[in-house]
Design a protein around this nucleic acid. Structure first.
Length: 257
DNA sequence: ATGGTTGCTTAGCAA
């Protein structure tokens, strides 16, 4: 099973690129983030024609997450399901061919110390609570998405400079580690140890040509899935050319149970 | 050096 995760930064703006990418990579499951649209404007019909079912937790203008799958998903959950205060569409989970898949868009946090920063750290705490309450480390589970946090210095082009920002601040890294330590393995690091593997580059300041990137998109696997992980990669190619997303897709492959 | 770019929505915000 080939599983991908991609922050498309508007599914409408990325429509052509998305369909071209799906046809090229033939993933079994694709988690999307930052749809920036509701179900009304989501291309369900064209995706069906391309061979994908889709379940989405949409939102107008901001956020929005989806799971595309060759096999139809069941047991769909939208949000933390706690009847709580979270009005932003940042989590969808479902079962696909015996594997539980979650697509998350963690808040960016904007500026350390801001209200949005507090929301980011609280949201990551809610994600850990959701895992504790609704999931088991012993089940086949993959948690995919834009976490808006780079785990380690080797995931950041200039760690010292980025440590004071929301994407690599020690408090953000601690909050991410608290999620990971629930029982996940970072699948990219099963297969690749080198520094400089990035999934996001700022649109500004020639960040991509200079390779000033960070690895903030992750496919985390529970132990039963980590054992089955045979490959992991980042599709840096997709960041090139005219009007790309600012994120590259990340991919991991899993052998059958 | 608070710049620079993209998307949504239409002047300003979010990333």
């Amino acid at each position: 099973m080939k599983i991908a995760s991609w922050n498309v930064n508007s599914v409408r703006a990325r429509r052509e690129r998305l369909f071209r990418w799906l046809a090229t990579h033939e993933a079994d499951v694709v988690c999307l983030q930052e749809l920036k649209t509701t179900e009304a404007d989501f291309p369900f019909d064209d995706l069906r024609a391309a061979g994908y079912h889709a379940v989405i937790h949409g939102q107008k203008t901001y956020n929005g997450v989806a799971i595309l799958s060759r096999v139809e998903a069941t047991d769909v959950e939208r949000g933390f399901g706690d009847g709580g205060v979270d009005t932003q569409s940042r989590l969808i989970a479902a079962r696909v061919a015996g594997v539980r898949v979650a697509s998350v868009y963690v808040p960016n946090g904007q500026e350390v110390g801001s209200e949005k920063w507090g929301y980011k750290l609280a949201w990551l705490g809610c994600l850990r609570s959701w895992l504790d309450a609704r999931c088991s480390p012993g089940e086949p589970l993959v948690l995919c998405g834009d976490f808006n946090v780079a785990p380690e210095a080797r995931d950041v082009y200039d760690a010292a400079a980025w440590e004071s920002t929301v994407l690599f601040h020690p408090d953000a890294r601690s909050a991410l580690e608290r999620v990971r330590s629930w029982g996940f393995t970072d699948t990219l690091r099963i297969h690749h140890q080198e520094a400089g593997l990035y999934s996001w580059w700022d649109y500004r300041m020639l960040a991509f040509p200079k390779d000033n990137g960070l690895r903030i998109d992750h496919i985390l696997a529970s132990e039963p899935m980590a054992r089955r992980c045979t490959a992991a990669s980042i599709d840096r190619q997709e960041r090139k050319g005219q009007l790309p997303s600012d994120h590259a897709p990340v991919l991991s492959e899993f052998r059958d149970a």
